[in-house]
Amino acid sequence: MGVGIAVGLSGFAFGVTAAGAGISLAQTCALSLFVFTGASQLALVSALAAGGAPLTAAAGAFFLGFRNAFYGLRLSRLLGLRGGARLAAAHWVIDETSAVALAQRGQHAVRLGFTVTGATLFVLWNLTTLLGALGAEALGDTNAWGLDVAGPAAFLALLAPMVRSGVERATAGLAVVLGLGLLPVLPAGVPVLVAALAAPLVLLVHSRALPGKRAEGDAKSAERAGKRTAKEESR
């Protein structure tokens, strides 16, 4: 519930940012209600606010949201839901619910963590989106408040502890370099699309290096085995 409350409150930032980008109240609330994935929502409105083409902005949001499909593949087996419950749960498969669910042990705990986090976050996110959109006028220049970074900051705080292996760190680092490096030279919304290429690029390099590492490991194993055999024979 703590994660749901903490992240749910950042829906206020989305509401303010969307209003500042010229998106209507109805459209802003509809995005939170039906899209319900903060990173994609903020990417969409930020790209539009920066003058990006609607199609490019939507494409960037889509690719950011596509990661939830991979969460769903993992959670599908752990939650063990069927029929309508499974379809309803799919709408709540996002970073926060996945992180909490995957940290649990046992199906009951996984379901409880997923459901409580999802329900808390869904209600608060939509409520604070409405409040943010309604209160945007009272805040004046919304860009001066820097509220648009609240969502990405919360996303990074959840993601950082999950980046453990060398491949994961390399992917994250390359994505940051591509996204920030191309930000000044490409239209709004395009850098995030290019940054998505970090994962396949790193995996390609890693897969090519893997046979060599395996061969080296096999050679060392064979060498150790030979030494053990020589010691046994000398006895």
Results as ranks from 00 to 15, higher is better:
93 V>F: 08
20 G>T: 07
202 V>H: 10
140 G>L: 04
168 E>A: 15
231 K>I: 03
146 G>H: 07
6 A>P: 06
18 A>F: 03
172 A>L: 15
128 T>K: 01
187 P>Q: 05
123 V>M: 13
212 G>D: 10
43 A>D: 04
199 A>H: 07
17 T>C: 05
168 E>Y: 01
43 A>L: 03
128 T>D: 01
119 A>Y: 04
19 A>C: 01
33 L>T: 15
208 R>E: 07
140 G>H: 07
48 L>Q: 08
152 P>A: 03
68 N>H: 14
194 V>S: 07
113 G>C: 11
142 T>W: 09
6 A>F: 01
208 R>V: 13
230 A>G: 02
125 W>M: 02
191 P>A: 03
201 L>K: 08
26 A>F: 14
86 R>K: 10
130 L>M: 09
222 A>P: 05
168 E>R: 09
170 A>T: 12
222 A>D: 14
178 L>K: 05
139 L>H: 01
168 E>F: 00
217 G>V: 06
7 V>Y: 07
51 G>C: 01
224 R>F: 00
101 A>Q: 05
164 R>L: 06
101 A>R: 08
14 F>L: 03
196 A>Y: 02
5 I>R: 02
139 L>K: 04
42 L>N: 09
83 G>V: 08
81 L>H: 11
48 L>A: 03
102 L>S: 13
191 P>E: 10
71 Y>N: 09
187 P>F: 00
40 S>R: 05
232 E>D: 06
31 L>H: 03
61 A>H: 12
74 R>T: 15
180 L>G: 02
158 L>E: 11
114 F>R: 12
54 P>S: 01
156 L>V: 15
93 V>M: 09
69 A>P: 04
77 R>D: 14
160 A>K: 11
204 L>C: 10
130 L>D: 00
214 R>Q: 14
29 C>Q: 14
179 G>R: 03
229 T>N: 00
148 D>G: 12
55 L>H: 06
83 G>K: 07
195 A>T: 13
228 R>S: 03
46 S>K: 03
218 D>T: 12
55 L>Q: 12
190 V>Q: 02
65 G>V: 07
78 L>S: 14
174 L>T: 10
183 L>T: 15
38 G>A: 05
115 T>V: 10
106 G>H: 10
225 A>S: 11
135 G>C: 09
184 P>M: 08
69 A>V: 15
115 T>S: 14
210 L>V: 10
152 P>W: 05
142 T>S: 14
128 T>L: 02
37 T>N: 07
101 A>I: 08
138 A>W: 11
229 T>M: 04
28 T>M: 01
71 Y>K: 13
183 L>V: 04
133 A>G: 12
217 G>L: 13
187 P>M: 01
143 N>M: 02
187 P>V: 02
204 L>D: 08
207 S>W: 13
124 L>V: 14
58 A>G: 10
183 L>R: 15
117 T>G: 01
61 A>Y: 12
105 R>Q: 15
47 A>G: 14
124 L>E: 10
42 L>V: 15
105 R>H: 14
146 G>Q: 03
128 T>E: 00
110 V>H: 12
14 F>C: 05
138 A>I: 06
38 G>Y: 02
95 D>P: 08
100 V>A: 11
119 A>D: 00
117 T>D: 01
191 P>W: 08
221 S>C: 04
75 L>V: 13
7 V>F: 12
39 A>H: 00
